[in-house]
Design a protein around this nucleic acid. Sequence first.
DNA 1: AAAACGGGGCC
DNA 2: GGCCCAGTTTT
Length: 362
Amino acid sequence: MHDGDMTTALMEWYARARRDLPWRRTHDPYAIWVSETMLQQTRVDTAIPYFLRFMERFPHIRSLAHAHEDDVLALWAGLGYYARARALHRAAQYVSAQHQGVVPADYAQFAALPGVGAYTAGAVMSIAYGLPYAAIDANVLRVCARIHAIEDDITRTKTKQYIAQLQRALLPPHDAGTFNQAMMELGALICTARSPQCGACPVRSYCRAHAHGRTGDIPYKKAKKNPRSERRCAIVCIREDDGRILMRQRGASGLLSRMWELPHVSLEHEEEPMPWSIDGAINPQWQEHVGIARLTHGTALAMFVHRFTHRIWQMDVVVRHAVVHRDAPSPYAWVDEQQRASLAVAALFDRIVASVRADHRV
DNA sequence: AAAACGGGGCC
DNA sequence: GGCCCAGTTTT
């Protein structure tokens, strides 16, 4: 038994068991790049509909490069990690201008683009261009850690570098893309994080974790810190004349940057002056600022809890009907149902607005 | 090296 | 409720 046999067994399994995925039906480097970007920290099943819609709307690099960022974000809305979409958009503009709209077939040039890290560079260069680079994602880290019975914390840089070195040694010189995908597919279908299907594994006989009964303990990861919880209060202002709802676009940096949201405040870091409070009091200066002449008394809705990776928002929601005497200034806007569907609305607020629409039948 | 950065699916 | 996911960038 040596490495060459394991690679052969893996590749034969992959040829037989590989899923038919949209980005496996193309050799277009741009399409593969888009798919790899969407798949960052995102499951395959989640990404598929987003990928199909994105490729239909932006079929080549130049169409993406010429798009407005708001439209790119709108197609990304619900996928999360929106910096990915903005970086991809900027990278497309750069490739369009500096590389004649062709994805560079050079690792260093491609890896220099915004949003392209070691994984994405290795994946696109190997899958799209057949270049001999490894692509180390969470699947490969897990599979590799188990095969070699690596007990070290796989989140540590040193462990990742060691695994990358092992992977490079296994790389078939002319079929690195298929090999990388086979490793990832094995991790996604067989060598899963919980209850791996070792009985169906094509490389079981090479796996030291399986031999030692350690698949439940490997890979090891240090526990993550608990996310911080924060109470917030959002306001849903519904126009009495046409039913539109007041929303606003977030700024260019930080969490959910450039995404649309309901106006909301933290109840813990007091914002001065407080635009409104949970008990129903509205700051007249804020009301005047957004052009509302009159507001009905508020009705409280259920609290919405939203978990991010690193924090939790407990969002109290107040619903009010508004009489408007002046259009809302940027970044505020009155949004109807059709506009909401074409705006980049953050998932939490999209959920809240949909719920309010259902309750009020508007 | 650690934290920021989304959201959904699964147990 | 906790863990995980075809990671990258910033601090």
